[in-house]
């Protein structure tokens, strides 16, 4: 072994240890949970063991139900996110650019913003029925706010020094928007979309409480109705796991997009 190899190998080992540390706590929790369940210390009709949840998942996966539920949830989240994200982008841009528009809409937005997604479910059923439309709209509202707020922030915080350069070079408003204001806002835009997508994914549970027959959220309400706690846990855990995966993916993408920061 030569000298230069040594620290590198240590670094690698260190990395493996770092990653392993992430898993220690979850594995410990699962192990304790399983042991307590096996020892009869848990009320299994409300808290099934990890093993039971695993079995439920395998049976869902084998029957093709799992991928079916996933597919419908994903398409709802996709449509809702697109709709809410685009609306948030447009309104956020207007709010960031025009103090006049900002004042005009401040009270309306201020009142609407604290309303949680779940709170809108009954209203959307009343307005749009229990079809896809109301589900997608609930998700869209969830995605809207983070995108809107971050876009506004990003657009408004454009460095005035850049705008001065554009003034000196006699650039028109459209060029300034396209070449300076939007690129300068990209970090905030990406953050907004990242938060928007994870909120949209979280909102799928609320959305699929509206007379759904498919979807990850449906697995949860179905589990409750049929007294199948393992199914409820399966639904909740998949939402959590997919949520974290989406976030990791977007965080990586963020670093790729903003290569100058």
């Amino acid at each position: 072994m030569n000298k230069s190899e040594r620290p590198r190998r240590n670094e690698k080992v260190g990395q493996i240890i770092d990653y392993a540390l992430f898993l220690v706590a979850p594995l410990f929790v699962i192990a304790v949970w399983q042991v307590l369940g096996d020892g009869g210390h848990l009320n299994l009709s409300i808290l099934p063991t990890p093993q039971k949840i695993m079995e439920t998942m395998v049976s869902y996966a084998k029957s093709g139900l799992l991928s079916e539920h996933f597919a419908s949830s994903f398409s709802r989240v996709g449509a809702g996110f697109l709709l809410g994200g685009l609306t948030g982008l447009i309104f956020g841009t207007l709010l960031g650019l025009s103090p006049w528009f900002n004042r005009l809409s401040a009270v309306i937005l201020g009142v609407l913003r604290p309303i949680p997604m779940v709170g809108l479910v009954p209203l959307f059923i009343l307005w749009f029925g229990i079809g896809e439309k109301s589900k997608i709209l609930v998700i869209a509202v969830g995605a809207l706010w983070p995108v809107l707020l971050n876009t506004e922030q990003g657009i408004r915080s454009t460095d005035s020094k850049y705008l001065e350069v554009a003034r000196l070079l006699k650039k028109d408003r459209f060029t300034i928007l396209r070449r300076i204001i939007f690129p300068a806002a990209v970090p905030e835009l990406v953050t907004g979309f990242r938060l928007g997508l994870s909120t949209a994914w979280r909102g799928v549970v609320a959305a699929e409480m509206i007379g759904a027959t498919r979807g990850v959220g449906y697995i949860i309400s179905y589990g409750r109705e049929m007294s199948l706690p393992a199914a409820m846990f399966l639904g909740l855990l998949t939402i959590g796991v997919v949520g974290i995966l989406i976030d990791i993916l977007l965080a990586r993408l963020q670093n790729k997009i903003i290569k100058w920061a």
Partner: peptide, 30 residues
């Protein structure tokens, strides 16, 4: 108001960090 006949340079370079050297200079062209 600013005119293309008068150029100005500041203490900070005020380059756009998202544009390459070439693109930054191209931005100067009217």
């Amino acid at each position: 108001e600013p005119t293309l006949e008068i150029g100005m340079i500041f203490q900070e370079s005020r380059l756009f960090p998202w544009l390459s050297v070439r693109e930054n200079i191209r931005f100067g062209i009217f």
